[in-house]
C-alpha cells in the first residue's frame, strides 16, 4: 500500500499493511527542515520544500499543514492585528470584535488575502509533487474557535451569559466564510480536514453550552466540507465520551475522531472511545506531545510509543497520531524514535 491507500483503508475501517502514521508533525518538521519556521508555516514553495524533506526522512502517511492558517492567516483576514515572528507561531496582537455591531463588518470581509493565496499555493505545489501517493491534511478550526480569536476567549465565554446573541450572530456570519476557505483548500488539494474544536472542548465549556451554541454551526461546516469532498476529522480534548460530546460529533458527516489531551490528566484512552463508537468511525491515537516526546529521552519516547501501539493493536480503523500541536523544540532524535517504533510495529488486524 502507498500512504494514500493506507490512510484510506484505515478511514474506511479496512485492513492495513502496517500502522498508518499520521502525527501532528507540522511544527517540528518546519523547524527541522524549513528555511525558516515562519516561511515553512506560511509560504508556498518554502512550505512545500519543508514538508517534502520531512516526508522523505520520516515516511509519514500524510502531509499536515495549517498551523499558520489557523493561527494567523484566518484571524488576520478577519481583521485581527497579527504578528508573524520568525521562530514561533503567529501571535494575535489585537482582537477585532468589540461589540455586536462589529459582526456585520466581519460578514463582508474578503478571506483571500495575499497571505491566504500564498498558503493555498503551497498546498497546490504539494499536491502536484505528491502525485496522489500521499494525502494532504490541513488543520482547520470551527466557527466558535475562530470567534474566540476575534473576540477574545474570556469575552466570548462571558458573552454566553451576558451577550448570547453576539455569540450566535458571530458564528452565523463565520459559517459561510469558514466553508468558503475550506472549499478553496479542497480545490487546491487538501484531502483531510483536521477540524480543531479547541475552545469548545469539555475541559473549557459545558456540554450544555456546546449543544446550545456550538453544535449547529459546527455541524453546518463539517457536513458541507464533507459534501465538497474532504474527509473531516474533528479534534477535541477532554472527556468527550463521558460528557456525551461524542454523541453530537457522531451525528455529523465525519470520517474520524482525533481525541486530544490538553493535559496529562485528561487523556482519553482510545479503547474507551472505541467501545463507544464501535466500527462506525476511525480513531486517531493521542500520544502526549508534551511528555517524553518533548522532555524525555529517545528510549522513553520509544517505550511510550510502544505502549500506545500495544494498547491499539489490531483495532480496526486506527491511525497513530499525537494528541495535539507538537512543539518545534521537540528534539529530532525523539521524533525519530517515535517514528521508528510506528514504522516497525508488527500490526495485526482484529
Amino acid at each position: 500500500m502507498n500512504a494514500a491507500e493506507r490512510m484510506k483503508a484505515a478511514i474506511n475501517l479496512e485492513p492495513v499493511d502496517r500502522v498508518p502514521n499520521g502525527p501532528f508533525y507540522e511544527a517540528p518538521i518546519c523547524q527541522y527542515y524549513g528555511s525558516s519556521f515562519r516561511a515553512a508555516l506560511l509560504e508556498d514553495q518554502a512550505m512545500a520544500d519543508a514538508h517534502l524533506a520531512g516526508l522523505d526522512e520520516f515516511k509519514f502517511d500524510w502531509v499536515m499543514v495549517g498551523m499558520g492558517l489557523i493561527g494567523g492567516i484566518i484571524p488576520e483576514a478577519l481583521d485581527c492585528r497579527v504578528s508573524y515572528p520568525e521562530d514561533v507561531f503567529p501571535i494575535i496582537e489585537e482582537t477585532t470584535v468589540k461589540s455586536i455591531e462589529d459582526v456585520a463588518r466581519i460578514a463582508k470581509l474578503d478571506m483571500f488575502t495575499k497571505r491566504m493565496e500564498r498558503f493555498l499555493k503551497g498546498v497546490s505545489i504539494l499536491k502536484k509533487e505528491l502525485k496522489g501517493e500521499v494525502p494532504i491534511a490541513c488543520e482547520y478550526i470551527s466557527p466558535f474557535t475562530i470567534a474566540t480569536r476575534l473576540r477574545g476567549t474570556n469575552e466570548i465565554m462571558m458573552d454566553m451569559y451576558e451577550n448570547p446573541e453576539l455569540v450566535r450572530d458571530l458564528q452565523e456570519v463565520l459559517v459561510p466564510l469558514n466553508i468558503e476557505v475550506g472549499k478553496a483548500l479542497i480545490e487546491e488539494g487538501v484531502d483531510y480536514i483536521f477540524y480543531g474544536a479547541d475552545m469548545e472542548c469539555p475541559i473549557l465549556l459545558s456540554p450544555e453550552h456546546y449543544k446550545n451554541f456550538v453544535d449547529e454551526p459546527t455541524t453546518k461546516v463539517c457536513n458541507e466540507l464533507t459534501r465538497l469532498g474532504a474527509k473531516v476529522l474533528p479534534h477535541m480534548c477532554g472527556s468527550i465520551v463521558e460528557t456525551g460530546i461524542v454523541d453530537m460529533l457522531m451525528k455529523m458527516d465525519i470520517h474520524g475522531i482525533m481525541p486530544g489531551n490538553l493535559t496529562q490528566e485528561t487523556v482519553l484512552d482510545i479503547r474507551e472511545l472505541k467501545e463507544k463508537v464501535g466500527d462506525k468511525i476511525c480513531i486517531f491515537d493521542n500520544i502526549n506531545p508534551n511528555g517524553p516526546l518533548l522532555i524525555g529521552t529517545p528510549e522513553e519516547v520509544a517505550a511510550e510509543t510502544r505502549a500506545h501501539l500495544e494498547n491499539a493493536k489490531g483495532m480496526s480503523g486506527y491511525i497513530f497520531s499525537t494528541a495535539g500541536t507538537s512543539s518545534p523544540n521537540i528534539p529530532k532524535e525523539n521524533y525519530l524514535a517515535m517514528n521508528r517504533e510506528v514504522l516497525n510495529f508488527q500490526w495485526i488486524d482484529e
Binding site: N154, M157, M158, M160, Y161, E162, P202, L204, L205, S206, H209, S239
Partner: peptide, 14 residues
C-alpha cells in the same frame, strides 16, 4: 471536579 466550566468561573468571579 467538572461541574462548572470556564464561563461559570468567570461569571462567579465577576
Amino acid at each position: 471536579d467538572g461541574s462548572l466550566f470556564v464561563p461559570e468561573m468567570l461569571m462567579a468571579a465577576k
